[in-house]
Write a protein that binds this DNA or RNA. Sequence first.
DNA 1: CTAAGATGGACTAGTTCGGTCGGATATCCT
DNA 2: AGGATATCCGACCGAACTAGTCCATCTTAG
Lengths: 155, 155
Amino acid sequence: MLRLSKKTDYALLAVRHLAANADRGAVSARELAETYDIPPELLAKVLQKLVRGRLLESQQGIRGGYALARAASAMSVADVIQAVDGPLMVTACSEEDHSCDQYSKCNIRDPLWRIKDRIIATLAATSVAELAMEMPAPLPPLPSGVMPMQMVKRP
Amino acid sequence: MLRLSKKTDYALLAVRHLAANADRGAVSARELAETYDIPPELLAKVLQKLVRGRLLESQQGIRGGYALARAASAMSVADVIQAVDGPLMVTACSEEDHSCDQYSKCNIRDPLWRIKDRIIATLAATSVAELAMEMPAPLPPLPSGVMPMQMVKRP
DNA sequence: CTAAGATGGACTAGTTCGGTCGGATATCCT
DNA sequence: AGGATATCCGACCGAACTAGTCCATCTTAG
Ligand code: SF4
Ligand code: SF4
């Protein structure tokens, strides 16, 4: 069904939270888990993967926690997905992995790979910063004549 | 991993084949399965789903088989995917299904839905006809009346 | 030292996916 | 008419993947 995993959802939720509260110091996994009702151990695992993917930095010890490793605007949702779920591919095959039974007779491979590249480009076009600046519901200083919906921007 | 299922792969393979050989009549499921080394019963199921999705027409009986229900240019890969794997969604939630535990506190829903729409647009932008007209590389020196490549005849 | 927090691996329950089987029905050919 | 070939449909099974859990270790502030 082309769905992205729950872990990825959790990762995006956490990363967005960290981006929105970047001024505060490190945020602990437990605090994050309680805020969004996520099983703490599972969230911890996801966060660790993000650290290994160089998207987050961790601070151990009693006042430890997680924080973004780089600016939210320089971090795309494609980065997050790949850090959590591994390299994303739409087909079972790839340039390296020819293990599909139909590989020799397949003639839809190239167009599908092109579609994959387009999807990755779509994912890479949305930065975490854009996620964080959504939902400004209690945002008083909204000048008149602003169309909040469907604001697609290209940084 | 955002991968599309094997059944979808089979469906695209079959649909592309039917589009490329549209001049011939109906093609049986077994012939298709043998051509691409696909388990026959499984391919049959996939083809049936495509029939239910109004993408193919089936002809029963001894000379039966499957054929495209409409022009290949009016059939996108998004149509094929949705016919086989159901409505494609990138998140577990949707406008109808709010059953996610984080739904009330989730603030990445809307941006993700926008990404989903863009992915669907990407998938809808590629028609089956485009798949079929790939790979015509060794076609130039072909006298009239000769079937193009992939003319597999069973003894 | 100790409490809070990160890290890592192993493990389990549940679900999905790829694949199989058996039977029913429709159509053509002799 | 009768048999051969084909689609159709539902139920079934084993393997693989997913979400979630448990535990044991390491690190650092106080
Ligand atoms: S069928 Fe073709 S595109 Fe799909 S996995 Fe196999 S080789 Fe790749
Ligand atoms: S976390 Fe948000 S986006 Fe993901 S499924 Fe739940 S409600 Fe939808």
